[in-house]
Design a protein around this nucleic acid. Structure first.
Lengths: 232, 232
DNA sequence: TGGGACACGTGAAAC
DNA sequence: TGTTTCACGTGTCCC
């Protein structure tokens, strides 16, 4: 409120010392990049230059009848926001040596690229590497293994999936297992079930993930285990 | 807080061509953060030579006269570099709706955070998956296990033995595996071999120990692994 | 018409 | 010393 009164004397155009430099804005037109902002030759309307001292606050408005200092206030706010985000960005980039804006941007770009690459390779590794998951077993000290059936194990290689189930021999357990697998958008390629000892069953399934479907080994194993448990 | 500061220094923001403004540096103090220099191979599409127009503008410059135009050019170059990096950064951030600088920075920050989080969870997933690795592979220490083919796993139930072998698909590997098993005085009851992915083979064998013969799971697994390794 | 975004030139300050 | 980076106010464009 009172601010507007305090700076009534905006009276711009103080540095018309080298006004001839301004027609260089024509050249700037082709320097400008990306966003299609075209600078016009800038007619540069000559305002009646009259420098007013600070004591004189005659509020006359030549052309710019708009708010004179809301503009600079808004610009300050914009700069402040930008600076804050620069700081926030620099806080996220590790090993930042130089803190100037260009370096922050440059290192952030490099770091972002490396992160994208890392995510890519990690995702590949997760889905393509051979991994066992979700063995519900506990090793005791003797090297023996206590079996908490059902035991489910899966490994991925791209879209191929190998699933092993070791469970108690029960009627319809094979059908139930295959149905569970199919519910995960897996196309069964091959399967075998072998009896082991007196009451155990060892099921092996090779399947393929349907296109556009991805899930983690962990989820698959957990879902199969909990699904089979309901049958036990 | 900041508003009071801004209002308080509102007045000294005016300018005349003289050298009379000094307290401007006071308010700069809390925002300013200076930086070292940095140079990089930059395309610099346009040198933008400042050619002298017919209406030469050299005059006055009471005291300064140091480098009036190099400064402008340097600043232009700096801005150009910054803008270029903004464009490069915006090209890396997917799903960018608004293209203004603040949005680019903000979205880049959010994207960077999400990538960091993703890397973290992915790395966790990979290591956790490795922790769960079962008995068959090489290194037992620290709960970690190296995933080295061939993987061999065996379990006993009385005289019954279940053996699983996951190995590279090679000719005669099944026969070799069965031969190795038989050398351990194991009578093969049932067996199956399933191809998995492009070059893997998953063999499951159910056998029975011959009378009078006993050995530990560990010995059986190790012998099978070393025997199969010679084939790889 | 008014607020948001941008590039500009400029003075100051950090090496 | 000069080179480099910064924030500032400003004009202008664009919704």
């Amino acid at each position: 409120m009172e601010i507007s009164q305090l700076i009534g004397m905006e009276d711009p155009y103080f540095f018309n010392s080298q006004w001839g430099l301004m027609d260089d804005s024509v050249n700037m037109a082709f320097i400008d990049h990306a966003c299609p902002v075209f600078m016009e030759p800038s007619p540069t309307p000559r305002p009646s230059k009259q420098l007013k001292t600070s004591s004189d606050q005659q509020q006359q408005q030549p052309i710019k009848t708009s708010t004179p200092h809301d503009h600079i206030l808004a610009e300050r706010k914009r700069r402040e926001k930008l600076s804050q985000r620069f700081i926030a960005l620099s806080a996220l980039v590790p090993g930042l040596k130089k803190m100037d804006k260009a370096s922050v941007l440059g290192d952030a770009i490099k770091y972002l690229k490396s992160l994208q690459e890392k995510v890519k390779t990690l995702e590949e590794e997760v889905t393509k590497a051979n991994v066992f998951v979700g063995k519900s077993t506990h090793d005791d000290e003797g090297g023996r293994t206590l079996l908490l059936l059902p035991e489910v194990e899966a490994r991925f290689w791209g879209k191929d999936v190998l699933i092993r189930v070791h469970c108690e021999k029960k009627s319809s357990i094979v059908e139930e297992t295959l149905a569970l697998i199919q519910k995960h958008h897996l196309s069964i390629i091959n399967t075998t079930a072998m009896a082991f000892a007196t009451s155990a069953l060892d099921i092996t399934v090779v399947a393929q993930m349907d296109k556009e479907f991805t899930f983690t080994i962990k989820d698959l194993v957990n879902n199969l285990r909990t699904g089979l448990k309901r049958f036990m």
